[in-house]
Simulated scan of single mutants.
Amino acid sequence: MTQERTEALDASPRLFESDLLDKMSRVHHLTPVIVYTPIFLGLVFYSLSLNGVALVLLGLIVGYLAWTLTEYFGHRYLFHTVFPLPFGLGPRFQFLIHGVHHIYPNDPLRLVMPPLLSGPIMLIALAIIRPIFGGSFAWPVLAGFMAGYVIYDCVHYWTHHGQPTSDFGKLVKRLHMLHHFRDAEKGFGVHAIWWDYVFGTAYQKGETPGSKAV
């Protein structure tokens, strides 16, 4: 890959005319860990005051699995769909939430969600989880969902800037690079890669990243 090509993929373009909005669209990759780890721990301790250890562990697993499905379907349908919004804003909306990432995939400050985006996702998750699971069990489920999100964001950053040494790590990175540089209609699980095999969007054996970005 040429130096010019590398610089283009690493670029961090301005997205908003407002200096404040543009600054808030860029975040350090450890932001999700810093913001959500204390909340996660608080939810776990609170959950243990309401439920037994086994039930809390079950809630964490349920919440984590719920996140992995959110990751897969959100990436497949929300991030890769242009919605018919009023005033022709659909393409602009899709570009802001994900399209820009495919054009500048290695932008180090736009590889994890800003809290202004991830926060509402957690509130929506809570609004859905509480009616389904009830008051006391909802909290460990939310904690598991939150943990899944943080893992996802960390893995996403790592797939672009990390150097895996394990076979599984190399597989996860390779599949995400295929999504960026070979076929963006496959490989929607960033860290939850198993859902692509379940839902028929996995890459076939022998496919390798190409030289043309999607």
Rank of each mutant, 00 (worst) to 15 (best):
P91Y: 07
R92L: 10
F93I: 12
F93K: 14
L96D: 07
I97W: 10
I97A: 09
H98G: 13
H98M: 07
H101K: 03
H102G: 08
H102W: 04
I103G: 04
Y104C: 03
P105W: 03
P105Q: 08
P105L: 08
P105D: 07
N106E: 07
N106W: 00
P108Q: 09
P108D: 07
R110E: 10
R110M: 11
L111W: 09
L111Y: 12
P114W: 15
P114D: 15
P115T: 13
P115D: 10
L117T: 07
S118D: 07
G119I: 04
G119N: 08
M122S: 08
L123N: 12
L123M: 12
I124L: 04
I124T: 14
A125L: 00
A125T: 02
L126S: 10
A127M: 01
A127S: 14
I128Q: 05
I128K: 00
I129W: 00
I129Q: 02
R130I: 07
P131M: 07
P131C: 12
I132W: 10
F133Q: 12
F133Y: 14
F133I: 12
G134K: 07
G134C: 09
G134T: 06
G135D: 06
S136T: 08
W139G: 04
P140H: 04
L142K: 14
G144E: 05
G144I: 12
M146K: 13
A147M: 15
A147Y: 13
G148P: 15
G148L: 15
G148Y: 14
Y149W: 11
V150Q: 13
V150P: 12
V150N: 13
I151H: 14
I151W: 11
Y152R: 15
D153H: 08
V155Y: 10
V155I: 11
W158Q: 06
H160L: 02
H160G: 01
H161R: 04
H161S: 01
G162N: 00
Q163E: 01
Q163L: 01
Q163V: 02
P164M: 03
P164K: 02
P164S: 00
T165K: 02
F168P: 00
F168A: 02
G169N: 00
G169S: 03
K170S: 08
K170R: 13
K170E: 02
K170D: 03
K170A: 07
L171F: 09
